[in-house]
Write a protein that binds this DNA or RNA. Sequence first.
DNA 1: GACATCACG
DNA 2: GACGTACGTGATGTCC
Length: 937
Amino acid sequence: MSEFGKGCHLHLIDGSAFIFRAFHALPPLTRKSDGLPVGAVQGFCDMLRRYVGRDHGEFAPTHIAVIFDKGSHTFRNDLYAEYKANRDEMPEDLRPQIPLTRRATEAFNIACKEVEGYEADDIIATLARQAREAGGRVTIVSSDKDLMQLVGDGVEMFDAMKNRRIDRDGVMEKFGVTPDKVVDVQALAGDSTDNVPGAPGIGIKTAALLLNEYDTLEALLDRAEEIKQKKRRETLIEYRAQIELSKSLVKLDENTPLDFTLADLELRDPDPETLLGFLAEMEFRTLSKRIAETLGTDAPTIPEQAPDTADTIDDAPVEQPPFDPDSYVCIRDLETLGTWIGKARERGWVAIDTETTGLNEMTAELVGVSLCIEAGQAAYLPLAHRAEGDGDLFGPGDILPNQVDREAALSLLRDLLEDPAVMKIGQNMKYDAKILARTGIAIAPIDDTMLMSYAMNGGEHGHGMDVLSERYLGHQPIPIKEVIGSGKSQKTFDRVPIADATRYAAEDADITLRLWQLFKPQLHRVRVTRVYETMERPMVPVLAAMEMHGVKVDRDTLSRMSAAFSQKMAGLEAEIHALAGETFNVGSPKQLGEILFDKMGLEGGKKGKTGAYATGADILEDLATEHELPARVLDWRQISKLKSTYTDALQEHINPATGRVHTSYSIAGASTGRLASTDPNLQNIPVRTEEGRRIREAFVPENGRVLVSLDYSQIELRILAHVAGIDALKQAFRDGQDIHAMTASEMFNVPMDEMTPEVRRQAKAINFGVIYGISGFGLARNLRIPRADAQGFIDRYFERFPGIKAYMDDTVAFAKAHNRVETLFGRVIHTPEINAKGPRAGFARRAAINAPIQGTAADIIRRAMVRMPGAIAPLGTRAAMLLQVHDELLFEVEADAADDLVARATEVMEGAADPVVALDVPLVVEAGQGPNWAAAH
DNA sequence: GACATCACG
DNA sequence: GACGTACGTGATGTCC
């Protein structure tokens, strides 16, 4: 054993962080033979394997240890009983896995250290100090901000999740101070996750500001009297003891008693027998194989469990072969393609992925297609790869030889992809369906792993392939950046060498198939099969058709408006500069803030986390009553927005081939079930102001046609009336009354015929507030009234409609108990933050109240959209659905068929809840038509 | 790439 | 009683 000294590099892994990440990143997995939960152990082992196996370059370890916490009571609890008191109980499934992670570490022959009564952080601090004093370097493997105080003098951190080293600059970035001041910042700002109190009202930004001015916490507290801001000064004086206590809680103990030395942590090779023995005991087949391969030995055989116990491990993923990019087949001739197609027919399913030259399905060209028949068996069919660079027989840009003839291949593929007996499985199939549609292939039937995940895990995490693969397969796919590069040197996929393309593309199909095999049986267990089959999957062809159809936008109208806006902006800019007495960038909130508040000395000072002045519209509006400049800036901002985001940008989006604008809807983007529109976003075209609304005049039908707009009237309030069971509201909707006026009448005891617009406006704000999970603060801000008044309104509202309060409380209670809420149609919306502590709790609470209402409305319009093609089929190509804007559908229809369309579409929309949900309130649709979108409203 | 701002339902 | 607040999105320009 050699001494630790100069030239040595100690790596300290934060064991708890590894365990928790492994636990939360992987689906519950149990040991097949006895049902012992081992998912976190498996993840932990895989993370260890990857960490020791990675190329650390100049940071390679000579010594390494995994450090664990031991015992729940530490010296910090003696200082402050509430320390970490708000931590949730350890999940039931995780508890038995903790000792196994210790054994795993030992099996890897890595030092595994803990000290009774001390947190891992203190041991890490002590070891880091010792290593530093011995002249060595230290890497702390963790992203925990509590450890950042240790950075410096050869000590750095490494965030294994983001694959990023954290040095002095990284700490500066996080805390705004050098590492030696981190403890002081934390003492002031406190930490809600550890229940460190800190100073109320002071966050990291403020703390950093103060410490950079006063240098040390002690100096700051001693000279607190000097601070200008009243509130801050009083807080620092009043809470001095609490701040000092916080400091002693966050300061790590660098003198933890240790019964081992740095030399004991020397890097050692694992003993294959011990390590593989442990893995076999845990029954990790894939991991055993992988590690055996690295160690150059054979993996031990792990017996399969008896078939009669299969149902007890229902949640365990099907055992799969490891990913092997070298095993993927590149299809170079029609015969081989025929063989793969034959295999897909035999199975009845195939996973498919298309590779193209870009992300825009309307302009991207098909480059190749990958297929996967079963886990590990995938192939890539290159169709249009081109030579890159030079030094080849074939010049840059030439189609490479030895690729299957495109037309012949597509003809073979068409038979498969249109075969009703073969399920085509994809990840985000709308993309592939559109690409294939442009080659004349109408792919069907389909399954979509992205949408399966969305139905099961909405709100829990994203549903992109990378996330799903890492989370559910424990496999990190080849990043697209590695294949096509990034930034300036990025190339299109057709310039990727075919061998590289094969590894990447076939892997995507492989992953998709594995995800499908995992997800398919889970759908019914989470009871979202109907959601998936009626509201997610059928959206794919409907949206694909709408997006490909596009909407005609008149370039001349937009370009004339842009020119007019330019002129107007130039005029306003000159006025603003004159008023300011100097020229500055009106588009820079920073510069504007300095002009308004520093130079002109207006009231309404600082705000915001970055220390910049807030200059949002609400603030400028307040100033505008007294001053010219902010009023002109508001005008300028409005025009600037309209020009840059709409009249300029929309022209860029007109497709040269179709002359129309083609948006793309994300089906699985919004947590509530809403769609989102991108590239361009056609769900936020201006309408609220007269000037903005004119942009809608550029959205026009083809000659002889009209645009028809149908929108649900007050759909969210109707849903609220139903779910909360408010008889008065339900009756008002049945009677077709003005719902806001009726609310006002109930609340303020004003007869309906004496209603003033002002009182109605307030009631309307309250109605919307309720949908958003009302708070006194929010309503006060919206109505610009004192907070106490707003709270009074809310109290009275709840008094008059007690069912609303009950609904809100019940919804939150349900969310807290189940970590999810549901729409009337069974859509699941996870609320992972609902049991969080601190300010996040408020957000989560309001989101949980809103989600079933917004989500039910989203479900209803989805149902209408799915039925719409069938309902308007008799009109043939005379009518087409173009856009969805949450509660509105826009159609383009031949003028003499418009009334027919309105009748059919209205019927579908108003009946969209049937027959699954019988609403106590009618759904009412309002229709309009005209020669442009503005006129159709 | 983060932040502020603002467009929509 | 304090915390920091309306819910859900996407695009743009500034600034680091």
